Every structure is written in structure tokens, then in C-alpha cells.
Simulated assay, not measured.
Amino acid sequence: MSDTENIDITNLGEGKIDKYIQQLENSILKRTTMYGLDDLTMMRQNQILCKLLNQQGLIALQKQNYEQCIEYLRKAELATIYVPELKVQTFNNLACYYRKMGKTRTALQYLQQALAIELQQKQSTSLPDIYLNLCAVLSQLERHEEAIQHIYLSIIMLQHELLISSFQKHEQRQDQPNEQSFPSRQSSVQYVNSVKSHCNESKKLQERMSILVVAYHNLGVEMEHLKLQFESKKIFQSALQLSEQCLPQEHQLRHALEEIIKKYNSEQQQQGNEQLTLKPLLPKVHQKNTELKQIYKSVSPKQILKRNTQLQQQKNNHFNNFKFTKKNSYSETYRLERERIMSINATTDVIIKNLENKDISNLPYLRTALDTVNQTTIF
């Protein structure tokens, strides 16, 4: 395997890559058996193998060769056991595959794992791409409010990345001395290398700018889903202006944005002079009957106790009013009954006193009085 370690992977033909992958797998197996899991050469080969498998998996996905794609990516996922720094890239690619196959929940799980790993890194360049993919998956799951939050994060991080790189380039230009247009023979190699690095940086910058255009486009789509047509049109216009600066004229996304703006303009002409109302980008509160219980639970216990006390007082007042009304309606009856009860109590007191004094001379009179009271009984 020593001769294959020095091969330039970028110069390998498409037919030779599969053969090289097989050689790498055999070499990794042999070195693991002979030297164990701490072998540095084996770790380096695993890193090369994982990158190749991810690359071939994406190529197969673009060619719609889905069986070969998942075969490459599953092997890459196994290789990440020894190369944990490539887990994020592999999980992203697996999410793209499962999203393409319509298994959006599985894709969401892989993206959440990739996001959890990337958030723990001190320096990260994959977060904007992860948030962009999360937006697309959540949008397919009809979770548009979550999707728009992720696309905002993607745009902010992409803009930050591009802004920092522009500042760094400006500082490098100021630090570099003024050179002649035609370099000398001694500096020709350095000049060629600098031109190559500049081309690579320009290509990378253009790729990141195109991803930013895609993020703008997705933001406009999510605003459409949330019925924010006016804001959506403004975002699409910004995306089109940006694409005109960084994308070639024949680019597919640029044409798609032009068609979207044409559609908005035609719809506005049909509406006439109708005034467009702006809506804030805040979570909407839907006042539904099913949500009243949740709103009531959110009240503090002190307020709930106060409310219950007020309700109880209202019930008591209503009951007292009802009793008062009923008492007035039978006022004469209650007056007679009260007088009867009072006379009975008075007679009972006299009997008790006489018994205590042992004076029984008045007993016949008391019996006559009791009989008279009993004759006035209403019930």
C-alpha cells in the first residue's frame, strides 16, 4: 500500500476510484490487525477513505444512482468511527440522501446530530450549510416557523463569513508590496502559485455567494408559506440583485429568481392599487378554543385563587338575593310562623322557671296557653 499512499486523488479517473477505495479498505484491515487501532498510517488512510466515499456518494446522488449512493455513505459512516472530524460532512450527505428519498424525519435526525457536533466546535464553517439543510427539511414537514428561524441563522453566518474574508483580503492587499506586472524568473514559481491560490479563493468565494443566494431564496419561500407576500417579494428582489453580481447569466437559480419576480409583478398589476399591509415577523397567536386551557394554566396561582374567590362571592350574592326574594314573597307566612315560635319559647321559659321554683299552681293556665298556640300552627 506504500505506493498508493502517494497517489494524487484529484487526478484519479472515475473507473480507478473504486479500485483505489478497495485497496484502501484492504490496507486498513491489514494494518488494524497487525498494528492495532493506534496506527497513524491506518488513521490517515481512514481519513482519505471517508473523503472519497463521501465524494462518490454525492456523485451517485446527482446521477440518481441511489443504491450506490447509500452504499458509499454507509461505508463512510462506519469510517467516521476512526475519523470523528468527518462525521458532520457524512451526516449532512446522509441527510441529503434521505431527503431525496422522501424520508424527511430520518434526514432531520442526521442533521440534528450534525448540528449537535458542530455547535461544540470552537471554529465552525459548516453551520450555515447545516441550518440551510434544516430549513429545507423542516419546510417539507410543514414546520415553517422553525424553518424560517434556521434560515435566518444561515444567512447571518454566511454574511459574517463573507464579510470577514473581504476584510482579510483587504488587509493582505495593503501588506503586499507593489510588484511588477511581469515577474522575474526567480519569482515565477511563486507568482504561479499565488495566481493559483487566488483562483481557488475566488472560486470558493463564488461558491459561498451562491449558497447565500440559495439561502435568500429559501427565506422568500418560507415567507410565502407564512402569508408574508410583501416581505417575500422584497427578499426575492434582494436575491436576484445578489445573483446578478455573483452568478453567471445562464445559471439556473438566476433564471428561477427572474421568473419569481415576474410572477409577483403580474399579480400586483392584477390587484391594482390595493394597499399592502406589513406584518411583523413574530410568532402568531392563534386564539382557538382548544388553547384556552393552556392560557388559563399560564396564570399565576395567586391570580387563580383570587379569581375563584370572586366567583364564589358572586355565587353567594346570587344565592342571598334569591333567598331575600323568596322571603319577601312569603312575608306574611314567615311573620306568623315567627310569632308562633316566639310564643312557644316564652311559654317554655315560664314552665322551666316554675318547675325550678316548684310552683305548679299555674300549670292549668299553661296547658290552656299551649293549646291556644298549637291551634295557630300553620303546618
Rank of each mutant, 00 (worst) to 15 (best):
H150W: 04
T377H: 05
S27G: 00
V88I: 15
D8S: 11
N193F: 09
V285P: 02
K293G: 04
P84A: 08
S27N: 03
T348I: 05
L37Y: 12
Y330D: 03
E77Q: 13
P364H: 09
L127M: 08
Q271N: 13
D3P: 03
R307Y: 10
R44D: 08
Y82H: 09
E274G: 01
L61K: 06
S2Q: 07
Q312C: 12
A215K: 03
K323P: 01
Y330R: 12
V373L: 15
E142F: 06
Q22F: 06
N92E: 03
L219V: 01
Q303G: 07
K75P: 06
E267S: 11
I59N: 03
Q140V: 03
K262H: 14
V299R: 14
T290N: 14
H286C: 11
R340G: 00
P183V: 10
Q159C: 10
N133V: 01
E5D: 12
E171G: 06
T80M: 06
F91W: 08
M42Q: 09
Q229W: 04
Y82V: 05
N328Y: 06
K327Q: 12
K19V: 09
L115C: 04
N345D: 09
L242I: 04
A60K: 12
Q172G: 01
C199M: 11
L108R: 02
L141H: 02
A256I: 09
Q56M: 14
L212T: 01
N317L: 11
K169F: 01
K122R: 08
L73G: 02
Q249G: 02
A79P: 01
S331T: 04
R74W: 02
H286N: 13
K284Y: 12
I344H: 12
L253W: 02
Q271K: 14
S266L: 10
H255E: 10
C96L: 12
M157I: 03
P364G: 11
E201H: 08
T10E: 14
E259A: 11
R340A: 02
K87Y: 05
Q45T: 05
Q123R: 15
R335A: 12
H318R: 14
V137F: 05
H198D: 06
I59Q: 13
H286F: 12
A369V: 15
T106A: 10
E67F: 06
M1L: 10
E67Y: 03
A79S: 09
R307S: 13
V189P: 05
Q112L: 08
C246S: 00
V285E: 06
L226W: 09
Q55P: 02
F182M: 13
L141A: 11
L40Y: 10
Q269P: 02
Q109R: 11
K279T: 00
